[in-house]
Amino acid sequence: MFELIKIKTENLSFSYNGNRILDNVSLEFREKTITAIVGPSGIGKSTFLLTLNRLWETVPQSSMSGRVKIRFDGKMQDIYGNGMSLTGLRRKVGMVFQAPNPLPMSIFKNIAFPLKLAGIKDRRTIDENVERALQQAGLWMEVKDRLNDSGLHLSGGQQQRLCIARALVLQPEVLLLDEPTSSLDDASAAVIEELLVNLKDNCTLIVVSHYFDQVKRIADTVFQFPYNGISQQ
């Protein structure tokens, strides 16, 4: 089956504090697949994810060169181009971090938070989207009776699924996951792996992972970092 390229990096280099972390990385990511990025610690895997939603720009003393293009509305667009809105980009390219980071508010408010940021006020739209996101993240049945409880009272695995639901509520086209299971036990990790495989119908996923067996189970494509242009599976 012919699959469209969703994300393309061209000669991407990144330096932090004068140290070069990424060097001329040119990669392509196919639409609606799971791509895993593996490799030893400190090699720039997480940094690479940050270049795809421009979150590195908040880090002082860092610089980037090269281009990143993502296909939005059927057209490859340079995400560092002038016409690209930063908040708009981050609504389409969601991100889940290594440690679950729910905000100190209720479960419902956590999920509704990105909608609030996007200026959506209609109560029904919010309710519907929150329920859909929680269902997509496989958390709805577990929390539907206690949506007003604090998000911090959930277990680690539930918190991470809460964060995934929160990233999904705006229906992003790309989801970046930075070692999403590394702080969880095996059972919770398995739940999230299954969830990720289900998500790829709607979304292009890029997962940074330490665990090679996990990668083998879920990834369609694997890139080994440090990237040398040949380690594609």
Partner: peptide, 22 residues
């Protein structure tokens, strides 16, 4: 913590929204 700093930004918050809400 930088991780908290990035939470809302990654969800599409503007700089001011991040300051006010988080």
């Amino acid at each position: 913590d930088p991780a908290i700093r990035n939470t809302a930004l990654a969800l599409g918050a503007s700089r001011l929204q991040n300051i006010i809400h988080v």
